[in-house]
């Protein structure tokens, strides 16, 4: 197992490198450049030219990439073109809130989708099953920005129970409880999408397992029905469930871009949006690098969890 993980980490290095090349290329393909994006249109062209030269934007594509890579290999992510702040610092202060948001949504999604999916599968083709499957359909179909606005209107504006955005009350005590209150709405929106999709997966996976002979063996032993479904069946249904929940982590990071805008959540999503608009190449490259690392790590994590969940899976 340890050697498997080590080998996978080694293999992911060239993959990561390839991703950065493609990302760099795509970012450069976007029209406009950082200088034009934030400089007064009346600036004399020679000043613009000088600025471009200073930022290294006039060198050929591969030279620019090579410089970026050399910098990265020295552990340096560069400085933002728009704020001149170190990129590493920008990401460092924003990754925390995003991870908090994404993992809260993932855990909330898991806690709701798992029992509902199991319940739905056990009561296959009953009114309950139809109702819950219908609900999951609604959850998947609702656009998250629409749901976000609806919830904001209801809970923040009308009922005044929850804050409209941000991570903490301004001039507040900054306590955990305050952050939790601010988390409720964005997490709910992200979780609804997760729940809608995952109920189907959990249900399908459980239905598959519920047909298996070993459940009859367990019943014949006199095992309680609850233990038959939640111990014997669920352990076997976990594999596909681990896979789909693992794949949800990158999706949640992507999905939080919109949600962070709506709820003014001070996370990576907001930073990404700003960097795209200002063509802030160093920040964008760093953000992409982080995203790529998240995806690759998640894949590896899923594979490791597989082996833990199913004794038949052995890595050499």
């Amino acid at each position: 197992m340890v050697s498997f993980v080590a080998r996978r980490l080694l293999v992911s290095m060239p993959v990561l490198l390839g991703i950065t090349v493609i990302n760099f290329f795509i970012i450069k393909l976007a029209p406009g450049n950082p200088v034009e994006m934030f400089i007064n249109p009346n600036t004399p062209p020679e000043l613009i030219e000088a600025k471009k030269e200073m930022l290294g934007l006039n060198s050929p594509f591969f030279v620019q990439y090579w410089q970026w890579l050399l910098q990265l290999l020295q552990g340096e992510l560069g400085y933002s073109f728009s704020s001149y702040a170190p990129v590493a610092g920008l990401i460092q202060e924003r990754i925390g809130p995003t991870l908090l948001l994404a993992f809260s949504a993932l855990i909330a999604g898991l806690l709701v989708a798992l029992p509902i999916g199991i319940f739905s599968a056990v009561r296959h083709n009953t009114k309950w099953d139809y109702f819950l499957t219908g609900l999951s359909f609604v959850g998947t179909s609702l656009p998250s920005f629409f749901l976000a606005l609806g919830l904001l209107y209801l809970f923040a504006l009308k009922l005044r129970l929850l804050p409209t955005g941000g991570m903490q009350t301004l001039n507040g005590d900054g306590g955990v409880l305050d952050t939790l209150l601010h988390l409720i709405l964005p997490v709910s929106v992200l979780a609804v999408v997760v729940i809608g999709k995952k109920i189907r997966y959990v249900r399908a996976s459980m239905l598959d397992v519920l047909q298996q002979d070993y459940l009859r063996t367990a019943r014949a032993k006199g095992v309680r029905e609850f233990a038959v479904t939640h111990k014997h069946a669920l352990r076997n249904a976990l594999l596909p469930i681990i896979a789909v929940f693992g794949m949800e982590i990158p999706a949640l990071l992507g999905g939080s871009i919109i949600i962070e805008q709506i709820f003014q959540w001070p996370g990576i999503g907001q930073l990404t949006m700003q960097s795209i608009l200002s063509r802030d190449y160093p920040t964008l490259m760093a953000l992409n690098l982080v995203a790529a690392i998240v995806v690759l790590t998640t894949n590896l994590l899923v594979d490791v969890l597989y082996a833990l969940a199913d004794p038949r899976i052995k890595y050499r």
Partner: peptide, 13 residues
């Protein structure tokens, strides 16, 4: 039961 290959739970010892 008939099928000893499928009557035992594969993920429990």
């Amino acid at each position: 039961f008939q099928e000893p290959m499928t009557t035992l739970n594969p993920v429990l010892t």
